[in-house]
Amino acid sequence: MKPVTLITGASGGIGSALARQLAPSHDLILTGRGGAALEALCTELGARPLILDLTRPETFERALAGLGRVTHLVHNAGVVDLGPVAEQEHAVWTHTLAVNTVAPAELTRLLLPRIREERGTVLFVNSGAGQRANAGWGSYAASKFALRALADALREEEAGRGVRVSTVYPGRTATPMQQRVRAQEGGEYDAGSYLGPETVAATLAFVLNAPRDALVSEISVRPAPR
């Protein structure tokens, strides 16, 4: 029986690359806000779409009703809005924390009974900003530091139930999100200087497919020197 893997933020970048790598050996549930990209990817891979609004975690329970088996949960969706603490208003902080931290916590809570039954994995796609906060990255880094805390606590809580909890910290990756980040930073976007999304996806797939006697708790992956 194939594992059933649910990936958030699956319609582009790292999410779609991971879906394509897993498709031959996993049944996939791909989440997003809907639209042609998600629909096309699900058609291509024979995956099930799941529409979720990550700003409204109160809607998750109804959306997940009747979902069936879930073996692995990959938290890949995220938002970033750069700016100094002196200038970012509370709405930016609230939105960033809601999508990057609160939504993963609630989705995990609701899916844990299924994941426990499968002795599956909860995998958090974090960021280098979850290990160090630089100027202008306060709200995003805070959300990713909190995501790390969520993963660390969950790992300890679920160890006795056979649930593996892992965090991957990718460096800059050649994705549309990175293009937006570079625009906010006022710099050039050079895809050749960054990790490829397929490289990060291969790292995530390695974590999910690791033999049952191994727990890969954390991995940092950075662009190699050019």
Rank of each mutant, 00 (worst) to 15 (best):
L107C: 02
S143V: 02
A19L: 11
R148S: 07
L22F: 13
W93P: 02
V80K: 01
R114P: 00
G187K: 14
L50Y: 06
G78L: 11
M1F: 09
A77H: 07
S217D: 12
D27R: 15
I29D: 09
L208K: 07
E185Y: 05
Q178C: 06
A10I: 06
P104D: 08
E198K: 08
L6D: 04
R114M: 09
T71N: 04
G15S: 07
F60C: 05
D53W: 02
P24D: 11
E156T: 11
L112H: 00
L50A: 05
S127M: 04
V70L: 07
Q88L: 15
H90E: 14
L147E: 02
V168E: 01
R222W: 12
G186T: 03
T199N: 05
S11I: 04
L50P: 00
L195G: 05
L73R: 01
E39S: 15
K144E: 04
R116K: 14
R148E: 10
M1W: 05
E218I: 03
A191W: 09
A135H: 02
Q184R: 02
V92H: 09
D81Q: 14
A224F: 10
A135G: 00
A19H: 06
V165P: 02
S166Q: 07
A63N: 02
G192V: 03
G138K: 00
L82R: 05
G162L: 04
P84I: 03
A98V: 00
L150H: 04
R161S: 12
T5Y: 11
D53I: 06
V92Q: 10
R155S: 13
A37L: 13
A65N: 07
E89V: 12
T203L: 15
P170Q: 11
F206N: 01
L82E: 07
L123K: 01
T43K: 15
A91W: 08
V163M: 02
T173V: 10
R212V: 13
V4C: 14
D81L: 14
V125S: 01
L107E: 01
T96D: 11
L67T: 00
S193N: 07
R222N: 11
G187A: 15
R116P: 00
I14A: 12
A77F: 12
L73K: 04
L195K: 09
P57G: 08
V207P: 07
P104Q: 08
T101H: 14
C42T: 06
A40W: 02
L50V: 03
A19P: 00
R62V: 14
N134W: 10
L18R: 06
P3D: 10
R212D: 13
H26W: 12
R212I: 09
R155V: 08
V207W: 10
Q179A: 15
R164T: 01
T55H: 13
E44D: 12
P223D: 08
A174M: 08
T96N: 12
